[in-house]
Design a binder for these strands. Structure first.
Lengths: 198, 198
DNA sequence: GTCTATAGGGTGATAGAC
DNA sequence: GTCTATCACCCTATAGAC
């Protein structure tokens, strides 16, 4: 019996987080209010406290859900038919494009995951662990493509994060910076190989 | 007589904007409130409306002041003794480091200038013009160092913006990404020259 | 579990006296 | 020009009835 209750409760929590993301898409990440959120799921604001301790806990759950979505989008099996060691360039371009598309698909989500856009909130240690896990998986994949050293990884993340930041800040929804992905990958791989080889 | 009045008014406006930046540094960019701001300059909130039409107008003035400060910091004559065409690498490294130092010196300022961190606000056309002017000056300098084509400039801005974004988001105040500047410049110049030369 | 009512704050902006 | 007083909202969170 208790399992059924817990399962139902968990489903309601998921509904609330899904509704929170719908609202954030419409009203902006910081435009999210508990009244609006409750209305979106057919409740009144105080009822949300039966599912989450605070608004910060809701942002935490949104954050964790976003990283689960990222992992699902990035590691979709059909995208990774190729072997990273065989053609690192093609493999890295595909990965970067997938990551950039994920960022562009939702600006509020990008803001919550990768910038400090919510005043007074930062992920709790538990929520932060979800992002660390995701990053670890990415590092392993980069290593298979030849990007292994800390400094090389930092250079890679700076470049891809820069493409996303410029694209979103200056031409949201466009392709001006995203279109540079192929060239950026070639550039980074050349730099890393030149430094490693001789 | 009217000139004196206007000059005094202009000085008070400058005082208010300077106070706004002090407050933003302490309370965060979106933590800025008109009550606090008025108190910081020894007024009550309604008196601010004698100098600015709205809170958005205050953000506009802060934005424009920040770009004036950027220009002053970047084009300080002592930093540009060298000729950009003679040693583009050294010249670009110096410029990027100066820009990164400016970003790191104030996170709220970085947020206002380069991200969309203030919900519901974006620079007015007049304020935006200040950023366009600054960008034009930067483009001219980049051209002298060999970065001329739109796509080359975009690649450059993405890389430097990415270093700043990663540094500020993941290790504010540190040097982990900033330390990659020299390498990043070498990498970009190689890519651009290879594409232009053969 | 969900509700109403409300505590206890906050906000930008305006009216009108001095 | 600056003030007090206030409008007209907004918010998160809790108490306690049902």
């Amino acid at each position: 019996m208790e399992q059924r209750v817990e399962a139902r409760r968990s489903r309601t929590r998921d509904d609330i987080i899904a509704a929170a993301w719908r609202l954030a898409e419409r009203e902006g990440l910081v435009g999210l209010t508990l009244r609006d959120l409750a209305a979106e799921v057919g409740m009144r604001a105080p009822s949300l406290y039966g599912y989450f301790d605070s608004k910060a806990a809701i942002y935490d759950a949104m954050f964790a859900a976003a990283y689960r979505d990222l992992d699902a989008a990035i590691w979709a099996p059909e995208a990774w038919a190729t072997d990273p060691g065989e053609d690192p360039h093609a493999w890295l371009v595909a990965g970067a494009e997938q990551w950039l598309a994920f960022c562009q698909a939702s600006v509020p989500r990008y803001q919550l995951m990768f910038t400090r856009a919510v005043p007074g909130w930062e992920p709790s240690p538990e929520a932060y662990a979800a992002s660390t896990d995701s990053f670890t998986r990415m590092r392993e994949a980069l290593a298979r493509a030849g990007i292994r050293e800390d400094r090389d990884v930092d250079l890679w993340t700076a470049l891809v994060a820069g493409l996303a930041a410029q694209q979103i800040a200056n031409e949201p929804g466009g392709q001006r910076w995203v279109a540079l992905t192929d060239r950026a990958v070639r550039m980074v791989l050349h730099e890393i190989n030149e430094r490693t080889a001789p």
